[in-house]
Amino acid sequence: MATKAYDKSFREEVYDKVDAGEEIKLCMQCGVCGITCPLRDEMTYGPRQIWSLIRAGKRDEVMNCSDIMLCTSCYTCKVRCPRGVKVIDVMHGLAHYALQEGIVPRENTSKFGKFFWNSIYKTGRIDETEVPMRYSMRRGPIHGIFETLEMMDIGRALLSHKRMHFKLGPGIPPSKKIKGIKGLKKMLDKAEAMSPGKEA
């Protein structure tokens, strides 16, 4: 990191536009979140430093950092934070905000999230076959077939235990929709419109 002046514009952007963004004001830099995170070895900064970077105004470092998409929502940090900061909410808020801004901090996570979301938005449920299938095809059908073959054993076991149903390919046959899917879509659209930075 090069020396760079503190810039208040990014922290104000976070406070205003990121879901739960104001929470980080209360962080007192104790580091419990960082040390408690099961993914700390995978992270470049960890939550505590992310907060510091936000306060320092380092937009690029934060928005491009895969850390904000690594959170698995285990909730340990949120439970342990002595200041009651909703660490997870901020992390997801940041990830969401980055995508909104056209930044993809972590390709795989964002793709998976998209398929996951689409499944819910279109059918009202998670299709356990559809979502992984689409995910494995994310880099084209050839790559998808190889990735699927690697998972063959698990797939077979899941099928035999009826944890997964058989499909020929994404959307073949199409997933079943829940009753009242139109209502659910309306709700989700409304929630989207209410999210920070999008209020009319």
Partner: peptide, 17 residues
């Protein structure tokens, strides 16, 4: 004024202007 200070959390020198 501008201040240059060590930031322990960021393990870096930062500037405030």
């Amino acid at each position: 004024f501008a201040i240059e200070t060590q930031d322990v959390t960021l393990n870096d020198t930062v500037e405030i202007e």
